[in-house]
Each structure stands twice: as C-alpha cells, then as structure tokens.
Design a protein around this nucleic acid. Structure first.
Lengths: 189, 189
DNA sequence: CCAATACTAGAACGAGCGCTCTAGTATTTC
DNA sequence: GAAATACTAGAGCGCTCGTTCTAGTATTGG
C-alpha cells in the first residue's frame, strides 16, 4: 500500500510526462493522487517547486534502477544498450506515446527559470552517466571514452523521446539505439 | 524593418526557448514584442495555439536554412556534422544556455494535449530529416541508411540540448557531435 | 488517557491566465 | 475624399493558478 506522499509523487510524475511542469496544476495533482491541497503542502511545504524537485530526483533514481537491471541482465554491454532503447520504445508505444522521461521535459522548460529544478535534473543526468560509464568501462572501454559514450547515449535517449512523441512512432528510438550499439561496438575494438 | 507580425513571432520564439509553451504568457509576448493583445489576436485569430504553431513552423524553416547553409559550406559531410553541433554549442554558450531549439521543448510539453502543435513539430522534424538525409545520400551513403542516420543525428542534437541546458556545459553537444561524425564516417566506408 | 504531533480537508485569496470587446488610428481602394 | 479595410490599443471578462489558512481527524509517545 502506497503512502499519500508516494501517491502525490507518482501522480505528479505521470502528469509531468504528458504535460511537463508548467502544464500541470496542483488541482490536477490533487485530483489524480486523491490527496487534498493541504496534504500536498504538508509533504512539500515549499509548494510546486519542491514537489517538482522530488519528482525529478525520485523518478530519476527509479529510472536508474531500471537501467541497471536491464544492463546487468544482458549478456554483454552492446545487447544492454539495445535493450535499453527498445524497452523505452515499447513503453512509449504501450502508453500511447505518453510515457516519456519527465526529467528531460522539465529540464528544457525550467532550466532558465527554476535553478533548484535545473540542479536536480543535472544531478540525475550525472548519475545516469556514471551508471552507464562504469558498465562501459567494465566491458573494456577506456574510462574517458566510456564517459563520453555515456553522455552521447543519454542525449540520444532523451532526443529519441522527442522525435517519437512528435511523430507518434517508435522508430526513432529503435534506430538511434542501433546506432548507439554501433558506437559502443566500435569503442570495444 | 520588421513587421508587427514578425516581431510577435520573434519574441514568442525567444520566450519558448527559455520557458516553453505553457510557461509563456500572452502578456509576456505583448511586452517583449511591443505589440498589444489586439494585434496578437489580429494576426493569430485562434490565439496562443495558432501563434505557437506559427513559431514552430517558421523557426523550423529558419533552422533548416541555417542547417543547409552550414552543410553546403563545409568541404564534406563529416565536417558539416561537426560544424552543426559545434555551432549549436557555441550559440548556447553565447546566450547563457537559453538559446536551445524551441521546437523540441514544445514537442515534449504539448504533444499529448495540443494535436495541432504536435503535427507542426512532426512536420518540421520530418523536413530536417529530409534535408540531412539528402546530403548524406549525396555523399555516397545508401538512401535508407542515410535516412536512419539523419534520424539519429536529429535525436542527438535535441537530446544534446537537454544535457547542455541541465548541466550548463557545452560538452554534451560537442561530444555527441563527434560521435555522430564517427557514425557518418563509418557509413561512408 | 491525554497531550502533542501528523495528516486530511477544502474554502478562500490575490494574482495572473487566455481571450473578447469596443474604440480608436492608419492605410488602402475606388 | 469618402468608404472600407487593416491594424493598434488596452480595459475588462470569467476562470484557474499557486498558495494560505482554519478546522478537523488519526496517530503516536509518555
């Protein structure tokens, strides 16, 4: 059984996915989560900004766990990259192209206007980069190259979400994933 | 001398870059463009949605011209890709990380809620893809492969903007650009 | 069992939203 | 030069925004 706080964060995460930060109102969050305004302000006294930061940090950690699960399940790092992009594409299709990463959306919207949120997104991306980088390095890629490759892979996933959502097609993520596999394979030689 | 309509579109484009669609109010657009509300509704009778679509279509065309200029200025297609990403990175830094592509931001925000805007973003991305694809094919890459590569390149640019903006660093775009050059070079062999 | 704390509940606030409307001034067209 | 059209100007509409506030109910600790 989920706590009220978890309900609020979960509902907000879902709303951020399809409408972003500015497009989501506290009224909607209250309705979708079943928690009244008072509860939202009880758990997040600084209001929407604080709730937004929690959504970014916590959903960022959840994505990272998923990423690590996928990676450690694959037989090699090249297969892992493919599974990552194909998994994202499948989730997107299943949700009628709603289920994109909310962090990239919020980063674009508010990086210039809400410094605390910008920092939260930056930290999450940094951690993803680290998780990917470590696994690429473990597969035999030089540390610096691994870090650069991880940066490109995160960029490609986030950009892939944009094209998939705009076109209502999963091809961009799948195609981009295959190109990322190619880059990793080349770095392994 | 710019027309009032051009002033409105230009001001809105600039505001979308830093705050997105939902984060930008008509009041701000009026103030920044110098045009009163009446003028905005004179040129865009269907209001904010119609203005938003115009911003996407017109700034999309402007970016495409820039892309073609850069591409046709370069000695080869690999150099062109590098110039594209480095140019984007430089513009970003010069503008204190505000000057990202507004189209990717709007696509993520409103693709599920404003069908007309989603279509506008899809068309723009399609045209960019075409412009890139033609040039990759002209350099000797098989047509289908060229199209796929173009998709990945557009994804990578848009995703690169996210990481750069979140981290307030230009490295992600530059690193990603070098990786794209690598992919193109590999496809040319 | 009672006091303190945690949490729920939602009405109400001022501010700002997108949009409409009326009235005005330029500019064109015949 | 008169009539029609194009555009400017901004006050004001109903509504929703994020936030605050008061009052209530559970839950906990001594």
């Amino acid at each position: 059984m989920a706590t009220t706080r978890e309900d609020i964060v979960a509902a907000t995460t879902e709303l951020f996915r399809s409408q972003g930060f500015n497009g989501t109102s506290l009224k909607q969050i209250s309705t979708e989560s079943g928690a009244p305004t008072g509860s939202i302000y009880h758990f997040f006294p600084n209001g929407k900004d604080e709730l937004g930061a929690a959504v970014i940090t916590e959903s960022g950690a959840a994505y990272q766990s998923l990423l690590e699960l996928i990676a450690d399940d694959a037989t090699d790092v090249v297969e892992a990259i493919g599974a990552l992009f194909d998994g994202a594409a499948a989730a997107l299709e299943e949700s009628d192209f709603i289920d994109i990463c909310p962090i990239g959306t919020v980063a674009r919207e508010v990086a210039s206007t809400h410094e605390s949120l910008r920092q939260a997104t930056s930290e999450v991306f940094g951690r993803w980069n680290g998780a990917l980088s470590i696994r690429l390095a473990a597969a035999g890629i030089d540390g610096f190259k691994a870090d650069e490759l991880a940066t490109t892979i995160v960029s490609a996933i986030e950009g892939g979400f944009i094209l998939c959502r705009a076109n209502r097609k999963t091809e961009p993520l799948r195609v981009t994933g295959r190109h990322m596999q190619l880059l990793v394979r080349a770095a392994l030689l």
